[in-house]
């Protein structure tokens, strides 16, 4: 039994050392990653200092061309949207961003699936794990899943599933650096008839996401950052239904909502869509123009 105990201790020590060494290496690599989505994440959280930030899911990163917004608004702009991500990541990124610079305007493209509805919030924490040591980020982890603090003891876990992408992006020969990255236009046109959109009900809203929204909007108010919500067009949808808890949030914080969900300039034109939920390059250009002009008239 003593022999077994010694072996288990030795093995545990080996695991701890490997974990620690891996952590040191990955921290170093991550902090020097300047390309790809991890380079962007690193840039947003450590170096970016633009006045206008765009947040949201794939509908943000594919729909808004920062150069159009910069031209029309006369302010520097960066697109912080991320595929399949919502308010949990956006809030974390905002907290890290505003340590060094207060943005003047935030444009948030709302996608109910990621920003409002109940689902596993742990999956939104991935991009924030390398920044776990920041107290603000720690508190987000604590709210999302209290068990995460134990898992985060392991440095290997911090880079779980992402380490290979990080190394590849660190060594990438691409000449597109995160600081110069604009957005991710979709260069295809929808050539089929999609299924109809399924509206969620008010009961499907996630209390935790609403709580994070509340914090986000309070922070923006405190820091004099104007926030504008946009709902991008969805192909073929003639009317929208804004969920009540979200409508209450908008009312409480007096936020402007630009609802283009059933904007007739877009929704009947397949040529502007890559798929039902995403505009293509041309659609994105038109939406960026339209939204930037609307915001311009708002902030005058």
């Amino acid at each position: 039994m003593v022999g077994l105990f010694k072996k288990i201790c030795l093995f545990t020590l080996l695991v701890i050392c490997s974990d620690y060494l891996f952590g040191i290496c990955m921290n170093k690599i991550y902090s020097h990653t300047e390309k790809g989505d991890h380079g962007r994440n690193n840039y947003i959280c450590n170096d970016a200092n633009q006045d206008v930030l765009i947040f949201g899911s794939s509908r943000a990163i594919h729909h808004y061309d920062p150069s159009i917004l910069e031209n029309n608004l006369g302010m520097s702009c960066y697109n912080c949207g991320e595929d399949g991500m919502g308010i949990v990541l956006s809030y974390g990124r905002y907290k890290l961003f505003q340590r060094k610079h207060q943005p003047k305007l935030i444009i948030y493209d709302i996608e109910v699936a990621y920003d409002l509805l109940k689902n596993d919030n742990t999956k939104y924490l991935g991009f924030l794990r390398p920044f776990y040591d920041d107290p603000e980020i720690k508190s987000i982890f604590e709210e999302v899943n209290p068990n995460e603090k134990y898992k985060m003891i392991s440095h290997l876990y911090r880079y779980n599933s992402r380490w290979l992408d990080i190394i590849a992006q660190y060594r990438s020969k691409s000449n597109i650096y995160a600081r110069d990255y604009k957005f991710a236009p979709l260069n295809r046109t929808m050539d089929y008839e999609p299924e109809t959109y399924k509206f969620a009900s008010d009961e499907d809203c996630d209390d935790l996401k609403l709580k994070i929204w509340d914090k986000f909007l309070n922070d923006c108010e405190r820091n004099n950052t104007k926030i504008v919500f946009v709902i991008s067009p969805v192909y073929g949808e003639k009317s929208n239904h804004v969920l009540k808890p979200f409508a209450n949030l908008i009312q409480k914080h007096d936020v402007t909502l630009l609802d283009h969900f059933s904007d007739e300039l877009f929704i009947n034109n397949k040529e502007l869509f890559a798929d039902k939920m995403h505009l293509n390059t041309e659609g994105a250009k038109r939406l960026s123009e339209k939204v930037s002009l609307e915001i311009k008239s708002l902030i005058k």
Partner: peptide, 19 residues
């Protein structure tokens, strides 16, 4: 044997799906 144990454990931590 030990390399197998350690290797598998590290692979679980780095490549496993936790959620």
């Amino acid at each position: 044997r030990w390399a197998t144990y350690l290797g598998l454990l590290l692979l679980i931590l780095t490549c496993g799906v936790f959620d």
